[in-house]
Simulated assay, not measured.
Amino acid sequence: MDEAIHINHKDFPDLITKKCGFSEEKAAREYHYAVTDKYGEGRFNRIMLGNGIEVNMVDVIFHNNLRLHYKLKQPLFEVVYMISGDLMFFNNEMNSIMKMRNGEANITFSNYVEGWLEYLSNKHYRYISICTSQPLSKALCADEDWDDEIGDFINIDNKLSNHLMIPQKINPILQVPFIQMKENSMSSLLRLVYLESKAMEIVALTLENEIIKHKDTTCKIKLNKSDLSKMYLVKKIMIENMENPPSILELSKMVGLNTYKLKVGFKEIFGTTVFGYLRDIRMEKARLLLENHELNINEIANEVGYSNPSHFATVFRKKYGVTPGHFRF
């Protein structure tokens, strides 16, 4: 068996070209790695999109079994759709060998991933993966005001993470954008724009249908009177510190709750996340200040915790449908 070591995403080009002797071509943000006759036929296409998201399209046949080992120390989010071929893989976190078959998909959502995947000889493997090796909250949104809220929104426990990693028949809703990516034949520039839109669609559908809905049915907790009092204390702290709010970890220490109970309990009681509530009270205060006409818009932005007036205007428009300037006049 031929073997190669895949350390992380950045090492992938060197791994393929040097260890396996595959040829490499680069065009804009696309990398094409052609399998040489020594190993088989086909290619790996790697497409680097915005916000650290990448698409990998694989269409290969190997003469001999090939096992790729990987050890990823940075956060990884990946959705894989297997079009053809039975791909064997092992993940240390689950400590089991699994097989992904035609028409199946799996989701990796972990801060540390180690294991291997194996291509069997003379099998035609075709699959597409959407992945990012940076925190998913960063890939989804560069807006600092939404970063903590998104982080809470997509935070999952090990039980759910392991469940998602088990290959299952792909959800038809999720299958459609994968197929559209595979069959896309647009010119290079428009192709990248199209692929990025489809990749983000897949990420959104995965979060909504495979993660958020699952969490909504499982993440219920019991809160006693003391817990309820602490939740209202959280609201009070956020109101008093909206200009420079504490982090979730800092909040949990201030009120004496673990971060999980704080995040889940707050949303159960108030119907929004801690940072969603912060955004709402900031915008309400900003609206009142705009109506008073005593401060200019830059001063109001600072007053409610935004150092960047443009960022403030964007969040205000999302909330009220108009810019602060149009609201005032």
Rank of each mutant, 00 (worst) to 15 (best):
N91H: 06
C131I: 08
I107F: 00
N91W: 00
S110Q: 08
M88E: 14
S96R: 12
E118N: 05
Y119K: 04
R126C: 09
H124S: 08
N92M: 11
N95G: 07
Y127E: 02
Y112M: 07
N95E: 11
Y125T: 05
W116N: 08
E93V: 11
M100R: 01
N111K: 10
M98H: 02
C131H: 12
Y112Q: 06
S121M: 09
R126E: 09
R126Q: 13
H124Y: 07
T108D: 03
H124Q: 08
R126K: 10
K123M: 14
H124W: 06
S96P: 07
N92A: 15
L120W: 10
K99W: 12
Y119C: 07
L120N: 12
I128G: 04
G103K: 01
E118F: 02
M98T: 03
K123L: 12
E114A: 09
N102E: 13
I97K: 08
S96A: 12
I107M: 01
F89P: 01
M94A: 12
Y127N: 02
V113K: 00
S96D: 13
T108P: 01
K123G: 10
H124M: 03
E93C: 08
M94K: 12
R101V: 11
E104I: 03
N111D: 12
I128R: 00
I97E: 11
N92I: 10
M94G: 10
N91T: 04
N91Y: 02
I130E: 01
F109K: 00
C131M: 14
S129N: 11
A105Y: 02
E114T: 07
E118C: 06
H124I: 04
E114H: 05
K123V: 15
S110W: 04
L120H: 13
G115S: 04
R126D: 05
H124A: 07
N111A: 07
E104Y: 01
R101P: 09
L117Q: 11
I97G: 05
V113H: 02
N106H: 05
M94N: 13
E114W: 04
K99R: 14
N91P: 01
Y127H: 09
T108E: 06
F90A: 05
F89C: 03
L117M: 15
N106V: 00
R101A: 14
M94P: 07
S96M: 10
L120F: 15
A105D: 02
F89L: 05
Y125K: 06
E93A: 12
N106D: 01
N95R: 08
Y127Q: 04
Y119S: 01
N102P: 09
M100G: 04
R126H: 09
N102Y: 11
N95V: 02
S129V: 02
M100L: 14
N91D: 09
S96K: 14
L117D: 08
N122Y: 11
K99Y: 14
Y112W: 06
Y119F: 15
Y125E: 06
N111R: 10
I97V: 15
N92G: 13
F109V: 05
W116Y: 13
I107A: 00
W116Q: 05
S129A: 08
M94I: 12
N92D: 15
F89N: 02
S110F: 08
N111V: 06
V113I: 09
K123S: 14
I128Y: 00
I97T: 15
